[in-house]
C-alpha cells in the first residue's frame, strides 16, 4: 500500500448483501489521494455496488466507508449531498439526460450548484467539452452520439464541477479499440492535470493495468490481491493469474455451482 500518500477513501470491514445473496464479506481497502486506483474482478462480483456504496446510494450491512474522514453512511442527507458535490461518477451507460443537449448536460451540475452567471458557465462548459474533444457536438442530443462519444460527454459532465474524486463504472465496457484508447488517455490525463483521485472499476485487464497506480482485485466476496500493476503481474496467486491472463477455467470455475452433471442428466436427483 502506498503509505506515502494520504488516503481519500477508506473502506473498513465492509459487508453487503442483497436479499440472501452475499456480495461483500469483510472488504477493506483504501484509496489514496491524487492517484488512479483500479478495482478489478470478474463480472457479477458487485463492482458497481461498491461504487454506489462509496457514493452513499446504498447502505452497507456492516463496516464503514470514510470519505476524507467523514463516514458516508452516518451523516445527514444534506451532509451527504455536500460530500457528493466533491465527487462524481461516470456511469457505465453514460447516463446523459436524454431530454437535454450535450451542452446543457455538462452545464447541469454547474447551474444547480455553482450559482455562477450563465456567461461563465458557458466558458467552463466549452472548456470541459474541449478537453474531451466534443466542443463541436455541444448542440447535439445524446441519442445522436455514438457510444464512445456519449461516454466522453458524460466524462465532461463528471468533471464539470471540478470534483476531488471521480468514480468510473466500467468506462471501457463495450467500446471499440479507438474509443477505448481515447478514454484511457483521457482518464490518465485528466487525473494528472486536475490532480483528481480516480477509482476505476473494470474487468478490462490490460487497459486498467496500463493506467492504474494501484490495483485491488475482488473475487469471492473479498479482496484477493492488491498491489501496483507490476507487482500483480509477477504475483504467483493462481486465481489472480487466471484473471489477468483470461484463462477460461482455473481456480475461478467455468461452471456455476450445480449438482452432479451425470446424475442430473440421468434423472437420479431427488
Amino acid at each position: 500500500m502506498t503509505t506515502s500518500s494520504q488516503a481519500l477513501i477508506t473502506v473498513q470491514n465492509l459487508a453487503f448483501s442483497r436479499g440472501n445473496h452475499v456480495i461483500y464479506d469483510d472488504v477493506s481497502l483504501s484509496i489514496p489521494k491524487g492517484q488512479v486506483t483500479a478495482i478489478m474482478g470478474p463480472s457479477g462480483i458487485g463492482k458497481t455496488t461498491l461504487l454506489k456504496l462509496i457514493g452513499g446510494q446504498l447502505t452497507p450491512d456492516a463496516g464503514q466507508i470514510h470519505f476524507d474522514g467523514v463516514d458516508v453512511h452516518q451523516c445527514s442527507r444534506s451532509d451527504l449531498f455536500k460530500l457528493r458535490k466533491r465527487m462524481s461518477m461516470l456511469f457505465q451507460s453514460g447516463a446523459l439526460f436524454t431530454d437535454m443537449n450535450v451542452f446543457d448536460n455538462v452545464a447541469f451540475a454547474l447551474r444547480e450548484h455553482s450559482g455562477l452567471p450563465e456567461q461563465i458557465i458557458r466558458t467552463i462548459v466549452l472548456m470541459k467539452l474541449e478537453a474531451v474533444g466534443l466542443r463541436g457536438a455541444a448542440q447535439m442530443m445524446p441519442n445522436e452520439l455514438s457510444g464512445g462519444m456519449q461516454r466522453r460527454a458524460a466524462l465532461a459532465r463528471a468533471i464539470a464541477l471540478e470534483p476531488e474524486l471521480v468514480l468510473y463504472d466500467e468506462p471501457f465496457a463495450g467500446q471499440d479499440p479507438i474509443s477505448m484508447g481515447v478514454l484511457v488517455k483521457l482518464i490518465r490525463e485528466l487525473s494528472d492535470a486536475l490532480n483528481l483521485t480516480s477509482v476505476v472499476v473494470s474487468h478490462d485487464v490490460q487497459e486498467v493495468l496500463s493506467i492504474a497506480d494501484y490495483v485491488y482485485v475482488l473475487a469471492d466476496k473479498r479482496v484477493v490481491a492488491h498491489g501496483t500493476p507490476q507487482a500483480l503481474r509477477l504475483a504467483d496467486n493462481p486465481q489472480l493469474q487466471q484473471f489477468i491472463s483470461g484463462a477460461p477455467d482455473g481456480p475461478v470455475p467455468f461452471h456455476f455451482p450445480a449438482q452432479d452433471y451425470r446424475k442430473e442428466m440421468l434423472g437420479e436427483l431427488d
Binding site: 454506489k52 457514493g55 446510494q57 449531498f81 455536500k82 457528493r84 458535490k85 465527487m87 462524481s88 461518477m89 456511469f91 457505465q92 451507460s93 453514460g94 447516463a95 446523459l96 439526460f97 436524454t98 447541469f108 451540475a109 444547480e112 450548484h113
Partner: peptide, 18 residues
C-alpha cells in the same frame, strides 16, 4: 422507467440533486 434504467436518476443523486 427509462431514466431509471439508464441510470439518469442515480446520476442525479450523485450530482447531489434530489
Amino acid at each position: 422507467g427509462l431514466m431509471k434504467s439508464t441510470e439518469q436518476l442515480s446520476s442525479l443523486e450523485m450530482m447531489a440533486v434530489d
